[in-house]
């Protein structure tokens, strides 16, 4: 046994000395990490996300391109009361055979339900995106400042407590009564205080990160507040922001639908899903084609946005990137 060991050790050609290079031990062999690449890799791993995105693209294309070629006019047949409230079958007979326009019948003023829904979804989507963009931007920036500075906190808490105790619906209805009910006044009504709860939510999130050690380190390096917010705080809140966006976007569509339904939403000349539903609800037993299609489309858009947002939020959490 001993003999054998000796011969093994003597085989010097099997071993050779290697210089100890300090820097080779520092090398990282793992592939480079990129945050956004990982987000999309995780996101597209789920098949449902591809489906949902396809649906969303379809809705966007249809609702934004179709009205350009086939404009919707609520009042085109208003003088002809014979074409009011026609079922799809009757409407198509009436307007000379199969046509896309009358696929869902006609409404209470002889308007095309299908064209109405398409134009309305465009308005609803625009409204949701614009309101969410304004509210989220102001909310996040104000929330970051609110959470970061103790002086701002004292002032903002008072403002928040006053405004948050006024019922939101009441505030919006009063505003709509005062400034009218056009598209932009509606946006104004939804955004004037809409950012406050978002900012309040972010205040708490920011407070958690503000006193972490790397933020203290930035303070020791003399980093200005604006850069601490954009570099130290907001990147950590990406997944929180996406999650919030996922619930905010559909909520504006529901809000518009609800407000138009109770009669204080967009004005009558702006086609909107909420208005169509409220017009159709009175007769949804007698003329169901005027009620169910807009309800279905409003629900579909809300659900698609919600699923998309939730899955994107999951993917943007770096803990899922492994």
């Amino acid at each position: 046994m001993n003999e054998q060991n000796k011969t093994l050790c003597n085989e010097e050609e099997l071993f050779r000395f290697v210089d100890n290079d300090q820097f080779t031990s520092e090398k990282i062999t793992a592939p480079r990490y990129s945050y956004w690449k990982s987000v999309f890799r995780v996101f597209f791993r789920k098949k449902i996300n591809i489906m949902v995105i396809a649906f969303l693209v379809l809705i966007l294309l249809v609702s934004f391109i179709m009205p350009i070629y086939w404009p919707y006019d609520q009042m085109e047949n208003v003088t002809n009361s014979a074409v009011y409230n026609l079922s799809p079958k009757v409407a198509m007979q009436r307007f000379g055979g199969f046509s896309f326009k009358w696929l869902l019948g006609s409404g209470g003023l002889g308007n095309s339900i299908l064209y109405g829904i398409v134009s309305s979804s465009r308005i609803s989507l625009l409204l949701a995106v614009i309101c969410a963009a304004i509210n989220m931007t102001i909310g996040i920036l104000m929330g970051a400042l609110w959470g970061y500075s103790k002086k701002v906190d004292a002032v903002m808490l008072v403002i928040y407590n006053i405004v948050a105790n006024v019922p939101y619906i009441l505030l919006i209805s009063v505003l709509v009564y005062i400034i009218g009910s056009g598209f932009w006044s509606f946006v104004f009504a939804l955004t004037i205080t809409g950012w406050l709860p978002i900012a309040y939510f972010f205040r708490t999130q920011v407070m958690i990160i503000r006193d972490r050690e790397y933020s203290l380190a930035s303070r020791c390096l003399g980093t200005p507040v604006s850069r601490v917010i954009t570099k130290n705080i907001l990147p950590f809140l990406t997944s929180v922001i996406v999650t919030l966006l996922a619930s905010e976007l559909p909520s504006y569509i529901s809000m518009e639908v609800f407000l138009s339904f109770i009669g204080i939403g967009l004005s009558a000349n702006v086609p909107s899903l909420g208005r169509m539903i409220s017009q159709g609800q009175g007769a949804f037993l007698t003329y169901p084609w005027e009620f169910w299609p807009p309800v279905a489309v409003a629900s579909a858009i809300t659900i698609i946005l919600y699923v998309l947002g939730q899955n994107l939020a999951d993917a943007s959490d770096p803990r899922t990137h492994m």
Partner: peptide
């Protein structure tokens, strides 16, 4: 704490 004192997203 070297884990806590570096900004993980930078």
């Amino acid at each position: 704490d070297p884990a806590a004192s570096l900004n993980e997203r930078a």
